[in-house]
Every structure is written in structure tokens, then in C-alpha cells.
Simulated scan of single mutants.
Amino acid sequence: MIQSMTGFGKHVVQLPTKKITVEIKSLNSKSIDLNARMPSAYREKELEIRKVIANSLQRGKVDFNLYIEITGDEASGQVNESVVKQYMNQLKSIANGEDIQLLEMALRLPDAMRTDREDIDEEEYTAILEALKGALTEINTFRSEEGSVLENDFAERIKALQTLLEKVLVMDPERQSAVRERLEKAVQDVKAEVDANRFEQELIYYLEKYDITEEKVRLANHLDYFVKTLKSKDSNGKKLGFISQEIGREINTIGSKANYAPMQQLVVQMKDELEKIKEQMLNVL
């Protein structure tokens, strides 16, 4: 079962005096590209948190946000009284004003508030890990649901390619006959004597040069292998991408060898279906 790299997860844990919110968003990327935003007090835990996220999500451009909101009587900062008083005295020397007005202005100036760094509370950190686990569960569920949609789309595209390949198989004898007739007519138009045996040898060589039997067999095998890989338990985005490249290679070769307009039209339709698969493949984990 495949998974998408696109997803979103959010989980909230309420403590007696704080509300902890974890949000995780992911988009497609060739590898894990993690951007983490969290309060400075928890920066020492960043590597541990990154490891947990990377092990769960594996690939993708990931944005991790940790919000800690104080909901009780606890204060996150204190007024730096000495600095504020100095600001007010300086402001008084510049212009007359009420103390309350001067205080409002002083509190907006740098270093008017101070925040004392606190040690990490183990209970709080445990709650953060719980919120992280919940958010990861949500985003992986989201990814699986998106992956299911992609899987159905891939299955339809592959089925369309198999149908087009069947049309190519049916059309191939007609194509070979048309190529042969076109060559014979070209020789007749020249109105020159041609050695029948030599002409037959050249004709066989020409038809063999444009024979697409191997390409048809390989393309059918690649399509079957794609379906088999799609149904595997693991999400194999990179493997499916490699198979898509091989499918494209065989389609291109058939197109270059076709030398027959109706078959080339089928090849164009096959390329269109494959291009849609490749576009969606960028989102597969």
C-alpha cells in the first residue's frame, strides 16, 4: 500500500497551567527535509524530536511547530524594574508626561521584560512527546488516505496503458503490411528493374529493423511489475519511479520504430497516460 508525502497532523495536550500544541505538515521531497520551530527552552531536545519525526515520516519536506500556551497563573516573563525606571527618567528629561504614559512607552523599549530560563520539566516534556506521537499518527493517517487515492489513480492509468498496448498488438500486423506495401510501391514508382531476391532481402532487413516484438513484451512485463509493486505492503515510491522510467523507454522506442501514423497516435496516448503517472509519482513516499 502506497503512502503520499503530503499530509497534516495536529494534536493538543492540556496541562494544569499550559496547553501544548504540536502541528506537523509535509510535502513531497527526495529526502527528509525538516524545519522545526519550538520555544528556545526546548532547543536542547531538538535532535531527539527530529529523530522521532524522521523515523516516522521517512521522506518529505516537513514543517514541525511546537506551541506552548500558558493558561494558568504562571507568568512567562517579569518586568525588569531597574531598566524601566531608567527609561522613564530619560523620557522625563526629554519631554513632560504622565507617569502612566511614560511607563507604557518604557515597556515597549528593549530589555524592559526579562525571561528567566527554566530547566525542562520532565512532565511537560513527556506531554510534548505524547502530543508529537498523536500528531504523527494523524499525519500518517492522512498520508495513507492520500496514498489510497493515488493508488486508485495509478491502477486506472496502468489499465489504460495495457488497453493501448493491446491495440498496438492488434495493429502491428497491419502496420507491417502497410510498410511493406509502401516500400513496394516506392520501388514500382522508380520504374527500374530490381532483383527480386535482393529486394526481398532488403525488405526483410528493413522490417526487422522496425520490429517492435521485444518492446511489446518488455512493456507488458513492466506494466505487470508496476501493478505488483503497487500492491506490496510497503510504499515503494522510488521503485515505482524507476519502473515508470523503463515504461517510458519502451513506449519511446515503439514510437520511434512505428513508422505508421495510427500506431504513433496510440503512442501519443500512452505517453499522455504515463506523464500523468509521473506527475503523481512525485508525491509518493
Rank of each mutant, 00 (worst) to 15 (best):
S177D: 05
Y206L: 10
L203Y: 10
S144M: 15
S177A: 11
R175I: 00
L169E: 06
N152E: 08
S144C: 12
Q188C: 05
N197W: 04
G147M: 13
K185L: 07
S144F: 13
L169Y: 03
L164D: 14
L207K: 13
E156G: 02
K191C: 03
D172E: 09
R157H: 06
E145I: 14
F142C: 04
E181A: 14
Y206C: 06
D195F: 11
L207W: 04
E145F: 11
R198M: 09
L183V: 10
I158W: 06
D172T: 04
K167T: 03
V168M: 08
R143N: 01
R143M: 03
A196H: 08
I204C: 09
E184W: 01
Y210S: 08
Y206F: 13
R182F: 04
A192H: 04
Q176E: 04
L150G: 01
V170P: 02
E184V: 11
K185V: 01
P173T: 00
Q188L: 11
I139S: 10
V187A: 11
N197Y: 05
Y205E: 07
E202K: 15
P173K: 05
D195A: 10
L203M: 14
R180I: 01
N152H: 08
S144I: 12
F199W: 02
K167N: 08
N140T: 07
L207I: 03
V179Q: 10
L164K: 15
P173S: 04
V179F: 15
V190I: 02
Y206R: 05
Q176V: 03
T141G: 14
E184K: 09
A196I: 06
A160K: 14
E174I: 07
V168A: 08
Y206Q: 07
L169V: 08
N197Q: 09
K159W: 08
T163D: 15
K185C: 01
L161A: 13
D195E: 12
R198A: 11
R182Q: 05
T137L: 15
E200F: 06
Q176I: 03
A186Y: 13
L203W: 06
V149K: 13
A155Y: 01
E145V: 15
S177E: 07
K159S: 14
R143Q: 03
K185S: 11
L207C: 03
E208C: 06
L165M: 05
E193M: 13
A192Q: 13
S177L: 11
A155P: 01
D195C: 04
V170K: 13
L165I: 01
E202L: 11
E156H: 09
E138S: 15
K209A: 12
D189E: 14
L161F: 06
I158N: 10
K159L: 12
N140K: 14
L169P: 00
K209F: 05
S148M: 14
A196L: 12
Q162V: 04
E193C: 06
D189V: 07
Q188P: 02
E174W: 07
K191G: 06
E146L: 03
